[in-house]
């Protein structure tokens, strides 16, 4: 940092300062923001080179690539913030191909007036999440827009990873007879964010489940290379993701409400807000679909990892030309679990 200190005699005022238009102008102020804030926290060899791109030789194997924009409000929520979320989201999207995520890029859109202290907290959180997930942020971009034209900060991350040989995981590979499982409780993230947004005081604080799942996926793929589908049920929740998979694979699904893990406080909050936990977003959950013969082994492997401690088998894939996801309700009846339509809206009475 010594060189940089010499370049900018006055250090960035991270405690009191705020983003202004000059931080996106491409000039000295922007270079200082990048050096003292982004590079400082996300430091690695490729980023340190200071190029507009990262040059690396990928390891042998097939590459996967995924991108994800993050626009969450509030930026800080129980259990996480937009910084770690922007790492987890993309790492998980890459990992759901059975891949080992390697590198990330990060694009920031900052709103004029955004406190540098908050930005520093967010970037620190990104850095921690990247270390935990074993990935490096190797290139990035910063833009500033006028006050009122963004909501504090938007972060887009892109990830690259490599898929081990003989692993073939895709949303169109579910077959009738396959078993459907999840790695834990559903709805935690969405309810944590919503309770913060609506200022709902619950006795027990519900924390977001935001987490990188690549280590769990690595364990799963090692033990059961024949997993057919993996997908993280983020926006739209379990219900929407199962419908996506059913459509891609041209199959139906039958799930059992009593087997779907949902925290007591999450179902209580959903009850209060008029929401259905099956449609609420998750950020540290995955759906796995595998042949019935290997379901037991896979479940054991998932449960052995802390991120799969509450893993459960929730249903099976069936033949169905209509590609319906049907659920046996806890009450003993049947119903369709449909795609989420529009936004999930609270009911009036």
């Amino acid at each position: 940092m010594q060189d940089k200190d010499r370049r900018f005699p006055l250090r960035l005022d991270i405690r009191q300062g705020a983003v202004d238009m000059s931080h996106g102008s491409g000039g000295r102020a922007m270079t200082q923001l990048i050096a003292e804030l982004f590079q400082h926290h996300l430091d690695n060899e490729l980023l340190r080179q200071g190029n507009d791109q990262a040059l690396f030789t990928p390891p042998p194997g097939r590459l996967v690539m995924s991108t994800d924009g993050h626009v969450i409000s509030p930026l800080f929520f129980p259990g996480g913030d937009i910084g770690c979320l922007s790492v987890h989201g993309t790492v998980n999207d890459v990992a759901m191909a059975g891949a080992r995520p390697l590198y990330l890029s990060a694009g920031f859109i900052l709103e004029e007036g955004f406190p540098l202290a908050d930005l520093a907290r967010i970037v620190e959180s990104m850095a921690r999440a990247a270390v935990e997930a074993g990935v490096t942020v190797v290139t990035g971009d910063t833009k500033v827009v006028e006050r009122g034209k963004a909501d504090g900060v938007f972060i887009t991350t892109t990830g690259v990873g490599v898929v081990p040989e003989d692993i073939d995981i895709s949303g169109d590979l579910a077959e009738p007879g396959d078993i459907i499982m999840v790695n834990g409780t559903l709805g935690d993230h969405g309810v944590a964010v919503m309770s913060k947004r609506e200022n709902l005081g619950f006795e027990t604080e519900i924390r977001s489940d935001t987490a990188s799942l690549n280590d769990l996926v690595a364990d799963m793929v090692d033990a059961v290379p024949d997993i057919h589908c993996l997908r993280d049920p983020t926006r739209g929740g379990l219900a929407t993701t199962l419908n996506e998979l059913a459509r891609q694979s041209g199959v139906g699904m039958r799930i059992r409400e009593t087997d779907i893990p949902v925290r007591e406080e999450v179902s209580a909050a959903c009850e209060l807000l008029g929401l259905d936990p099956l449609y609420v977003a998750n950020e540290g959950k995955l759906i796995a679909i595998c042949p019935a013969g290997q379901a037991h082994d896979l479940l054991q492997v998932m449960r052995a990892n802390p991120k799969g401690r509450d893993a459960a088998i929730i249903g099976e894939v069936v033949e169905d030309p209509h590609q319906f996801v049907q659920m046996e309700t806890s009450f003993g009846g049947q119903r369709v679990v449909d795609w989420l339509a529009g936004e999930q809206l609270p009911r009036i009475c």
Partner: peptide, 12 residues
């Protein structure tokens, strides 16, 4: 109506 459909009451 919501309860009837949500819980599959008609099936019972």
């Amino acid at each position: 109506t919501h309860a009837i459909f949500r819980y599959g009451v008609q099936d019972l």
